[in-house]
Design a protein around this nucleic acid. Structure first.
Length: 881
RNA sequence: GGGCGGUUAGCUCAGUUGGUAGAGCAUCUCGUUUACACCGAGAGGGUCGGGAGUUCGAGUCUCUCACCGCCCACCA
């Protein structure tokens, strides 16, 4: 029988995926088991393309989903994409701009049509890329945050929260992005450390020629000053409280007030108060009932509230001009260089201005209470556990969530205004009219609120809205909510996780997920954040193309140790590609040996020690790996499966199987074939969740598909094969040590590993003699031994201690005695050291008294062994000399 | 200012109730033997960031210092 052709991921991955899709392999298989498994995907931006973060995130989800599917649980992985309000609008605007069209030229309706057109055409890219990775989502349930169902859910949630007064409209100082001309939430503002200047400006007192000096980093805001504050305890300014000063250039008079906000140690101790353009000043203004003067237009230029010379200048231009004028007119006391943080918009990277506008807010403080309580009650658990601290810290200090955006792409806010400005919130205009009639006795509704909702508002509903809510009878909602686990990066704990908790609890009265698995960021191999500008981005699709999705998945999974960033290196991927090839070749080996020709697996009473040993090892590692996955220790799971397959199955068992299959004992041949058939099936099923493509392909190429009457993706783990006795598995451990030692000695004596030798053993306990005779085929083949004699034939040539037995090896003439003495001397020195340490320990009374018995015994055994080995070695050395 | 991580072999990282320091990659030597050179066999390489403490015993627990990274808040 011929071998497989060599492994090439390009031949199989796409083919296998379309097979899965065509045959609807990812649809949940209904069953009555109370336990189920469900995950909602963190919806990627519809504008997005797959980056390493996605690849990690989805490799982990797919591992969990496939593993639980193989466990036989009814399993749903709910996919979808996010409409990404700002990002998408910007993409489409950019395209139009190339054609010389602006968004405003088109008007709202036509513009939105363009966006939808774009979405239909390009919105599927990220989905296709997820498929390349092997993600086994139920694509028949694919959702979009702007689709009909989700939009309905959004409206319902908004109206409901409004009625409960958990959503309200308010005139407040808000973060304003002058480039996008929209409000954004606190979370979308990034504070950046910047070198800046601190300007000390003289304000003239109104009643004499003296000055009061204030320091500011944003001098242009002085046109909006409505007071100067000094600390009531500050002796320098006590006399001035209540007096008036004149703002330079605009020459408006304002009062000096007393407020604890002024810090005598900062700047000059006197601080200008601009309630309309600074969050702290806003509070000071409220406390002291100051006016607010807004000096900015929505685009960041100065408005009519500033002197004519400055009208319509951008705020940063105005700043430059103002400094020159202040300097000329001798209002500038000094300029200092300082380091401070400046707020930037995370999307536009433009400086954010606090601006007084009317916006919609969610009363997050109230919703957060239950979300905190449920995590404290451990109804939702974080992995690693530490992240719950971050969660609590933010939740306990949560601010009102600004949810309105002055954009066009998104869920338009379901609020209508009557002619006289009264607000009506309803799911649609008909409802709104009804309410208007009843409540305000008017049918005249002028217009709908033009704003749209923050994209995260709809994302917050994702775990229940995608499952069918508000239709509470939906099968999926009942079956799959709460979801089993949310897999996400820590960067969106606030944006998303916290908000899903709040909304899920409020509307479903149950947490949206049992567990939250928080994974790290993917960085480059030097630990740098991947970014286009640094040019260190590793594109997952390039890697998939070169090494295969399986290799990439295995790499990411194996590197996802909790609490550490994933530093991705191409070398690692290459290494795991080799691992996959190795697996492939083991099946080729089995095929050559006609393993898959059998009609069924006949395994009843396995007798051969090697066969017993591999089954025992398999069972052991199967359990370890299952536990690792259950504990979210995917790195450990990957390590164990790699270790088991490569170091036990390949390095030892396959080698054992060769002499067994080649023997003339038909029973042993039959048993070994069946063992291989059984173990390889288990290997595939265990590996499938990690490397689905190659395993499914092998499942097809071998006989398992017919044998088990199912695709691997839907194969259910079977009960472990229980060995009737496992005593002789220890024999194999002895043999492994024996052969390893033999090889090591040969290498040290510069004897070619392939050379066959004669082995005479002096002092081998009967028990061990038996083991060797029982496994003669294996020992001879793997040890490359011609003949061995266990009866103690005296020979001075090549005497060594091996597996703690005195042994002599005949190698022919080529043995180098001096070399051998050198090796043995080295070993003796190490032993001397260890013996000294053990003796010291055992002479220590408190060690004997206080250490547990087994530890003390262990130490005694160690000493005994070392002593006898020492004795053996010394004898050999003197006999060689 | 508040909080959270990290520091273990040349590199990337494991090390789960404290009990003889591990893996992969890289390096060196040897090698084609029923799969696999994307391979096999063997070897070298570590005072576990520094210091102190608890303990019979510390990579592991406590304190402290140093360096690196991240998050939140503030900044006149």
């Amino acid at each position: 029988m011929s071998a497989f052709k060599s492994y090439n991921h390009k031949d199989i991955e796409d083919k296998i995926y379309s097979y899965w899709e065509k045959n609807k392999c990812f649809k949940p298989k209904k069953n009555k088991n109370k336990k189920y498994f469900s995950i909602v995907i963190p919806p990627p931006n519809v504008t997005g393309s797959l980056h390493m973060g996605h690849a990690l995130n989805n490799s982990i989800q797919d591992l969990l989903v496939r593993h639980n599917r193989n466990k036989g649980l009814e399993t749903l992985w709910q996919p979808g994409t996010d409409h990404a309000g700002i990002a998408t609008q910007l993409v489409v605007e950019k395209q139009l701009f190339k054609k010389g069209i602006s968004r405003k030229d088109l008007g709202r309706e036509k513009f939105l049509k363009e966006v939808w057109k774009w979405k239909e055409k390009s919105g599927g890219i990220i989905t296709d890329q997820l498929k390349k990775l092997g993600s086994s989502c139920d694509w028949s349930r694919d959702r979009f945050t702007m689709d009909k169902g989700l939009s309905k859910a959004v409206l319902k949630v908004f109206v409901n929260l409004y009625e409960k007064k958990l959503i309200y409209k308010d005139l407040k100082l808000t973060n304003w992005d002058t480039k996008l001309q929209t409000a954004i939430s606190d979370l979308e503002v990034v504070q950046k450390n910047t070198k800046g200047k601190l300007y000390y400006i003289k304000y003239k007192l109104a009643y004499n020629d003296q000055n009061i000096i204030v320091a500011t980093t944003r001098p242009e805001t002085m046109f909006g000053d409505t007071a100067i504050a000094v600390n009531p305890k500050d002796e320098r300014y006590k006399e001035l409280i209540g007096k008036e000063v004149i703002i330079p250039i605009s020459n408006r008079k304002i009062k000096i007030i007393s407020d604890v906000y002024a810090d005598p140690d900062q700047g000059s101790g006197a601080v200008k108060i601009t309630p309309a353009h600074d969050f702290n000043d806003y509070l000071v203004g409220k406390r002291n009932k100051l006016n607010s003067i807004n000096i900015l237009n929505k685009d960041g230029t100065l408005n009519e509230n500033v002197p004519n010379d400055y009208l319509n200048l951008d705020r940063l231009e105005a700043r430059k001009k103002l400094i020159v004028e202040l300097e000329q007119k001798n209002y500038l006391d000094k300029i200092e260089d300082i380091n401070h943080t400046v707020p930037y918009g995370d999307r536009t990277n433009s400086i954010i201005e606090p601006l007084l506008t009317e916006q919609w807010f969610v009363d997050a403080k109230k919703l957060a209470k239950e979300a905190i309580r449920q995590v404290k009650k451990k109804n939702t658990n974080f992995f690693p556990d530490n992240w719950k601290k971050t969660y609590f810290q933010w939740m306990e200090n949560i601010e009102p969530w600004c949810i309105s955006r002055q954009l066009w792409w998104g869920h338009q806010i379901p609020a209508w205004y009557t002619e006289d400005g009264k607000i009506i919130v309803a799911e649609n205009i008909l409802e709104a009219k009804k309410i208007a009639k009843k409540k305000f006795k008017t049918a005249k509704i002028l217009k709908q609120d033009p704003d749209v909702l923050d994209t995260w508002f709809s994302s917050a509903l994702w775990p229940f809205a995608t499952l069918g809510w508000p239709n509470n009878k939906s099968y999926e909602l009942k079956r799959f909510y709460k979801t089993s686990v949310l897999v996400t990066g820590f960067d969106i704990i606030f944006f998303w996780v916290a908000r899903m908790m709040m909304m899920g609890l409020y509307f479903m009265k149950e947490v949206p997920f049992e567990d939250v698995y928080v994974h790290a960021l993917v960085r480059d191999e030097k630990g740098q954040k991947m970014s286009k500008s640094k040019g260190n981005v590793i594109d997952p699709l390039t890697i998939i193309n070169e090494f295969g999705a399986d290799a990439l998945r295995f790499t990411l999974i194996s590197m996802s140790s909790p609490g550490r960033d994933v530093k991705l290196s191409v070398d690692r991927v290459k290494g795991y590609r080799n691992f996959i090839t190795k697996i492939w070749n083991t099946f080729s080996y089995c095929k050559i040996n006609n393993i898959f020709k059998t009609k069924n697996i006949k395994l009843s009473n396995v007798k051969n020690p090697a066969n017993q040993w591999i089954i025992k090892t398999l069972n052991l590692y199967k359990q370890k790996i299952k536990n690792n996955i259950n504990d979210y220790r995917f790195d450990e799971a990957a390590r164990n499966i790699y270790l088991y397959i490569w170091n036990y199955f390949c390095d030892w068992y396959i080698e054992f199987s060769k002499p067994l299959l080649n023997s003339n004992n038909k029973k042993i041949i039959e048993e070994t074939k069946n063992t291989l058939l059984y173990v390889q099936r288990e290997n595939l099923s265990l590996l499938h969740a990690f490397i689905p493509f190659v395993t499914e392909e092998l499942w097809n190429l071998t006989n398992y598909k017919k044998l088990e009457k199912t695709d691997l993706v839907n194969f259910n783990f079977k009960k472990d094969f229980a060995l009737k006795n496992t005593k002789s598995t220890k024999d194999i451990d002895f043999i492994i040590n024996f052969i390893t030692d033999l090889r090591s000695i040969k290498a040290k004596l510069n004897i070619s590993p392939g050379n066959f030798v004669d082995v005479n053993i002096d002092e081998l306990p009967k028990q061990n003699q038996k083991i060797i005779y029982n496994n003669e085929l294996i020992v001879k083949k793997l040890g490359r031994i011609n003949n061995f004699d266990l009866r103690g034939v005296k020979s001075k040539i090549g005497k060594v201690v091996l597996s703690n037995n005195k042994i002599s090896i005949s190698f022919g003439d080529e043995i180098d005695l001096d070399q051998q003495i050198l090796i043995l001397d080295k070993k003796v020195k190490i032993l001397e050291n260890e013996i000294r340490n053990s003796e010291k320990k055992l002479k220590n009374d408190s060690f004997i008294k206080k250490a547990p018995e087994n530890v003390v015994n262990q130490e005694k055994d160690l000493l005994e062994n070392n002593k006898s080995e020492y004795k053996n070695l010394s004898e050999i050395i003197s006999s060689l000399k």
